[in-house]
């Protein structure tokens, strides 16, 4: 069985802060990580490899430094890694990103494609279903649990108020939730192998069969017009009182606002 896992290298957004003077993101010194949903997807693939045997290929589109994320995936146990990188791919929205990734996946063998539900920097959750559309595959999003049964996959699919247990014939694309599992750590041997034995293949525009009008900034239907930091609403009043006075004050305020 061949599994392709798409991963993205993202800034750890829990550590991204705003510069109060310029109102811009401070990204210096912010660590880059494998996007958490993607890492859960990778772990799910590695577990299938452990259980039933599978060849796991990780694919990432990004700048050359995304190599680090792919090496980490190799050190966790992935068999192959592909970095899809070219200036022509830069500035892509989800449509252009999914077109590029689908073209890369077209060069690979696959029975199962796994992406994360969403990346923590863009938060769109669009690229997975869009890759499935480009490859004309069924997709099952929000996978909380997966199981292979013969030539089919059974996915526990999460909704806000319910779960669906869904069965589909392979090939299929699923988007993984962090709830799927706890990803394993890299092993020291794995890290050695990731840098010495295994290679990260680098694919540029020339390696893909793709219409250049559908990639990068130019191929993106959506355009970012502006970005800004959220203006916090003006602060109310701060009170530093004895507990009893605080309680009375809250009741008074509730009355004032006709809440009680």
């Amino acid at each position: 069985m061949n599994i392709v896992v798409c991963i993205k290298q993202v800034p750890d957004t829990t550590e991204v802060r705003l510069d109060p003077k310029t109102n811009t993101l401070i990204r210096d010194g912010v660590p880059s990580i494998i996007n958490p949903d993607d890492k859960a997807g990778l772990e799910a693939a590695l577990r299938l490899k452990d259980e039933i045997g599978a060849h796991v290929t990780v694919v990432s589109m990004g700048p050359p430094q995304a190599d680090a994320a792919l090496r980490e995936a190799l050190a966790m146990g992935a068999d192959e890694a592909v970095l899809v990188t070219d200036r022509a791919f830069g500035g892509a929205d989800t449509w252009a990103t999914s077109t590029t990734l689908a073209a890369a996946i077209n060069n690979l063998k696959y029975d199962l494609i796994i992406t994360g539900r969403q990346a923590i920097d863009g938060d769109t959750a669009q690229v997975g279903p869009q890759i499935a559309e480009h490859l004309k595959l069924p997709n099952i999003s929000y996978a909380e649990d997966i199981k292979i049964e013969g030539d089919s996959i059974i996915v526990k699919r999460q909704y806000e108020d319910r779960h669906h247990l869904i069965k589909a014939k392979l090939p299929v694309l699923i988007t993984a939730l962090t709830e799927l599992n706890d990803p394993r750590y890299m092993t020291p041997g794995g890290i050695f192998d990731a840098f010495r034995e295994k290679k990260v293949a680098v694919w540029t525009l020339n390696d893909l069969t793709v219409d250049t009008s559908n990639i990068g900034l130019k191929g993106s239907p959506t355009k970012v017009k502006k970005s800004f930091t959220k203006g916090a609403k003006s602060a109310g009043k701060l009170f530093n009182l004895e507990p009893q006075e605080s309680a009375e004050l809250i009741v008074d305020k509730m009355k004032e606002k006709f809440i009680i």
Binding site: T124, A125, E133
Partner: peptide, 22 residues
């Protein structure tokens, strides 16, 4: 929602148009 965020990307990819999330 868990439905809208699954459906809208696929429709946008099929129609070939832009989609902004959330």
């Amino acid at each position: 929602t868990a439905i809208g965020r699954d459906l809208a990307p696929r429709v946008s990819a099929r129609v070939h148009t832009g989609l902004t999330a959330d």
